[in-house]
Design a protein around this nucleic acid. Structure first.
Lengths: 133, 133
DNA sequence: CTTTCATATTAACAAATGATCATATGATAA
DNA sequence: TTATCATATGATCATTTGTTAATATGAAAG
């Protein structure tokens, strides 16, 4: 996992900022997830935060593909694709199987296509017609 | 929107990589979303790809909060929080309303809590017990 | 064994990102 | 008006990220 700085510390009060609504803050604080979970969550979503990886995942949601096919599809260098495949694989977003010299990649579980769908839904609802500045 | 380089070009073939399965590549290529959508998608998800923003969103999913309450909750500098709130606001992930000097923030729509939930679900299923290396 | 082909890995570099400091804005109170 | 409080913004800096070029691995073919 990515190294995290200690910028977000949920349990301390030394930030010299006034709390206007102590009740709200305390109630919310009790229900906040542990740092471990927010880190895991952001790491998970950051994998979807790059258009190359989105393209790869979208492609794999349609068909298992080998590395060089993905390169051809996206018109990208093999090493760039392999790097991204490695990240996705290490995070269990995709899986691979070897057949001779060829390695085939596919989505690891149904959650992934779900996430893509939800995102696409959001985009289409936000900008029903046109690009917004 | 973030400036994109032309690394991913879906419609050209000049990458000098062998396609092993032309049929698969061509079939997938037809169904690939336009570059505009993959950019929008990755921009959307990248907002969830930072633990500060995840914490903010999680907090707002429980209650509307003002800026300094969020600072106190997360023990962060006011400018850091405002910067992230700005990004989230510009992307229509959160909205704000002013009441005198105080600005209150809340989630913009139900999709957002949905996305958080789906992510949390995924994490809990992937690592049911322990941190994996 | 040697070559070839598909993929993986390493180091390096440029671009993007997030926190900080300092300062600006904008609304209320004095 | 002036002072104060809550929030926003701009510049800077260190870290992270994604691509590239070069090279390594590893399986099959000759």
């Amino acid at each position: 996992m990515k190294e995290k700085e200690e910028h977000v510390v949920l349990s301390e009060f030394d930030c010299s900022v006034k709390m206007i609504h102590k009740d709200v803050v305390n109630r919310v604080r009790e229900k906040m997830p542990a740092r471990y979970f927010t880190d895991q969550l952001s790491d998970f979503f950051s994998l979807f935060g790059d258009s190359t990886r989105i393209s790869i995942l979208w492609a794999l949601s349609m068909s298992e593909m080998c590395v060089c096919d993905i390169c051809a599809l996206l018109n990208m260098k093999q090493s760039a694709v392999s790097q991204q495949l490695k990240r996705l694989r290490q995070s269990r977003i995709i899986r691979n199987r070897r057949e001779g010299k060829v390695v085939y990649y596919s989505l690891d579980d149904d959650h992934i296509a779900c996430v893509l769908d939800l995102g696409m839904q959001h985009i289409r609802e936000e900008n029903p017609n046109e690009r917004i500045e």
